[in-house]
Write a protein that binds this DNA or RNA. Structure first.
Lengths: 157, 157
DNA sequence: CTAAAACCTCACATTGATGTCAGAGGCAAG
DNA sequence: CTTGCCTCTGACATCAATGTGAGGTTTTAG
């Protein structure tokens, strides 16, 4: 199939497909006139690339790892293995941080809900309470002195 | 404290601190000569901002939500609450996707290790097997015909 | 007092993935 | 053959957070 259909099937833009090729993440066979052609398999590949992007890997890193995914040979010695494990760990850390932040957001939402039930306790405390180990920590109660001309209230959502 | 100490205490660059202020995420009191001054509280605030950034929120979104964190008032009506809950859900989805990708990486690492034990099974299969619900899915076995002059093997890690 | 270090504003550069445009050629249907 | 849609390359634009540098003022240390 040609690039247009391929791109829409993979759910990305034509531009992106060309970019992936430029970065060495994807190959295409070219017709005599120079047009790119793709097989169904490649669609899966794009999905995988997207997932790695979402995981925070750069094009460069993906380009380093993908060949090892494709052709497991003796060459991917310790270095590649190391790199993969390392990215995995980075990802694990990142996930932990996100869970953590999500908890904070949960706290905020909960407090907001509670507040709407007419309680007058500041949201900040609840958010801080939800946050993890660090003890004795207090969220800034500042910001109320609107010294600079910065917007302010919640109206503009 | 002045901006230099503040920035290093918060673990960000001076430039970033000024940027946060420009974006309405942070305020500062100014001395007569125009220099910014910060309180200890603000350090926490920066940490929180960083976490929201890491969670994929944009400056704009953070600017929308932070005031509600600071001053829980009746104004953060449904809109703000909605927004927070929505960001939380987005985050949850994102986390799920990452867990998912991490599993795939785990699969790759495992396969690579297995391969180093001299087995000849292609890594691709293992990775796909680890991946989640979608059935009948097969990773691209292509890429071996190196038609274009794209780099290739794993050597350059 | 003087020099160094820190600060100010303004403005332009950078990075990564992608959008967009221009000019030219390819390919199928009428 | 022509019209319309798709593709090609190449280049410039975008966005967000940050880096960087110039040119000038303030604060601090000797």
């Amino acid at each position: 199939m040609r690039i247009g259909e391929f791109a829409s099937r993979a759910g990305v833009s034509v531009r992106s497909v060309r970019y992936y090729e430029e970065q060495g993440l994807l190959t295409s066979t070219r017709s005599a006139s120079g047009q790119r052609h793709y097989s169904d398999d490649q669609v899966e590949r794009v999905a995988f690339i997207q997932r790695l992007y979402a995981a925070g890997l750069s094009s460069r890193t993906v380009a380093d790892l993908l060949p090892c995914v494709d052709a497991p040979s003796a060459e991917h010695s310790d270095a590649a293995l190391e790199r993969m494990a390392q990215e995995r760990d980075r990802l694990t850390e990142h996930i932990a941080a996100l869970l953590h932040t999500r908890d904070a957001l949960d706290g905020l939402v909960a407090t907001a809900r509670a507040h709407r039930a007419s309680l007058r306790q500041p949201a900040v405390r609840a958010a801080a309470a939800v946050r993890p180990p660090r003890a004795g920590e207090v969220m800034p109660s500042a910001w109320r002195d609107e010294t600079s001309g910065i917007p302010g209230p919640c109206g503009r959502l």
